[in-house]
Amino acid sequence: MATSSEYIVRTKDLVKIYTMGSTELRALNGVSVDIKRGEYLSLMGPSGSGKSTLFNAIGGLDKPDEGSVFINEVDIAQLDAAELAYLRCRQIGYIFQTFNLIPVMTALENVTLPMIFAGVPSDEGVERGMKLLDTVGLGHRYHHKPTELSGGQQQRVAIARSLANDPAIILADEPTGNLDQRTGTEIIDLLRKMNEDHGVTIISATHDPKMLSVSDRVVHIRDGIVERIDLREDLDITIGGIEEHH
């Protein structure tokens, strides 16, 4: 058990092929990544690099054509629909570029929704939901609908929602893509804080350079393969190097 707990997510030779008419596009062409428990990992790459495809495969949202994804050493291809739902509900929290709050529900109802799916009693859910909203600094706006909140506030609610069932992993797909610079930085800092306080593993698909400075590792994806992996130590040096040139 102890030996298996070092890596929370492992992918092995992932291949995903999209056929468009007669042409075959290999969106993923043999990607193997090992992600450590408690790590803050960024997936970087231009659009069309296969970054989102990898992201969806890790999240169990899309099935790869070849290869396997292991979460907690469980091959998720072996799970049936209910077990996958369970995995998404308890083990993974999702954050989206477009926030994806349920428009008809208040902030609190959005945060407690995953708890309902997990069978958490209503009172306990509300209590935990309020605590999470407080953590992201929106405790006072719990009764507001998403349309009454700014983009940054909606993303904060989404972060609170992603933590609802105390997941081991948070998957964030371009979490700052629809936000301005300053709000984006706030969201990144909040994610980093959650990573440090809750020990939750954060995997973020992004092309926001602000993400670089908080990530433990950055995996660069290009043309469906891992181009290179940067460690934070190396990154600091590289960023320093770039600044020297200016």
Binding site: G59, L61, A85, R88, R90, Y94, T98, L113, P114, F117
Partner: peptide
């Protein structure tokens, strides 16, 4: 989008 989100959050079919 709403349905997809719910399924990501663990809603069963």
């Amino acid at each position: 989008k709403e349905i997809g989100t719910m399924k990501c959050l663990g809603a069963l079919d």
